[in-house]
């Protein structure tokens, strides 16, 4: 089982991104997804910057995948997409239909979690177009995944998000700008003030969601370390960590230890809960409300 690192979902200062990936070179992750997937107005790194990071990570033995924007609206975004699809070095993770259009028939691509694949028939269609891996949509329960995997196309890898905030929605509207009473077109890139996202609480002070520009995430983080044995039995090939401003290295080391059977799943789950933002959740995996939490059995 491989361990992967999702793209950084937030807007971090350029130097912080560069430092983060310098460190990642030494972390026990096998696959690193790179790129800006949330907002095209975030331009602290250009295409060539990402490719330079990709080269350094590849030299460190990582498989590097370039991830595409999730909501594609403008011609300029299509131009970037075409450049990415033709990069010639790294596999690309498609996060919308525009990317699928540019990657179908090319030499292998990853079906991102925002491409809606809920059954083996859709998976087969995309496998025929050249998909090599699919990232399971966040809300799919283990029971459904089991049924899909029973008919999964040969050679297609499966990846599941196991740690980090869960992406829940995308909009044409920027919620961070809205919280500052600004329109999206006059946002002033205010999301750079929130490298860990902006918390949204109910009127009863329950941590509920995270605003991240045009994206909405969970407030707390998914923690599926307790399900690692089940995932292994299901034939999951890659487990994914979503970067956080703090603690990402510890999360990857804990998961590596659990994958390598150095620690048991329940211990890993407890260790992750101590590091990840609360409240922990694993409801989607259990077939319940995504925000729900059930501790690993035997604890």
């Amino acid at each position: 089982m491989k361990l992967s690192l999702a793209p950084i979902p937030y807007l971090w200062p350029r130097d912080d991104v560069l430092a983060f990936y310098r460190a990642v070179a030494d972390w026990p992750v096998d696959v690193v997804y790179l790129g800006e997937t949330v907002c095209p107005k975030r331009r602290v790194l250009q295409g060539r910057d990402w490719l330079a990071i990709a080269d350094r990570l590849a030299d460190a033995g990582k498989e590097v995948v370039l991830s595409t924007l999730t909501l594609v609206e403008a011609e300029s975004e299509l131009i970037s997409l075409r450049r990415m699809a033709d990069n010639g070095r790294c596999m690309v993770e498609a996060n919308d239909g525009s990317a699928l259009a540019l990657l179908a028939g090319k030499n292998g691509f990853v079906i991102g979690a925002h491409i809606n694949v809920y059954n083996a028939h859709s998976l087969a269609v995309l496998a025929r177009m050249g998909a090599r891996r699919w990232v399971v949509p966040g809300e799919l329960p283990a029971a459904t995944l089991r049924q899909i995997l029973a008919e999964r196309p040969r050679g297609l890898e499966t990846e599941v998000l196991v740690a980090g905030r869960v992406p829940l929605a995308f909009s044409a509207r920027c919620f961070t700008a809205r919280a500052h009473d600004r329109g999206k077109d006059e946002c002033g890139i205010v999301c750079e003030r929130y490298p860990d996202g902006l918390r949204l609480r109910t009127q009863e002070a329950q941590d509920f969601l995270t605003l991240n520009g045009v994206q909405i995430q969970s407030a707390g983080a998914a923690n599926l370390a307790g399900a690692l044995p089940e995932m292994r039995a299901l034939g999951i090939d890659v487990v994914r960590v979503v970067p956080l401003i703090e603690g990402t290295e510890e999360v990857t080391r804990t998961l590596r230890a659990a994958i390598d059977d150095v620690v048991d799943a329940a211990t890993a789950e407890r260790a992750l809960s101590a590091v990840l933002p609360a409240p922990a959740c694993n409801g989607y995996w259990q077939g319940e409300a995504g925000m729900a939490w059930r501790e690993a059995e035997g604890m």
């Binding site: 999730t70 909501l71 925002h114 809606n116 966040g138 809300e139 869960v166 829940l168 929605a169 995308f170 909009s171 044409a172 969601l209 909405i216 969970s218 409801g283 989607y284 077939g287 319940e288 409300a289 995504g290 925000m291 729900a292």
Partner: peptide
């Protein structure tokens, strides 16, 4: 964006 929102299942399943 329609088709890209799971806020309902986040709260209710």
């Amino acid at each position: 964006v329609e088709g890209r929102c799971t806020l309902s299942s986040w709260a209710t399943g």
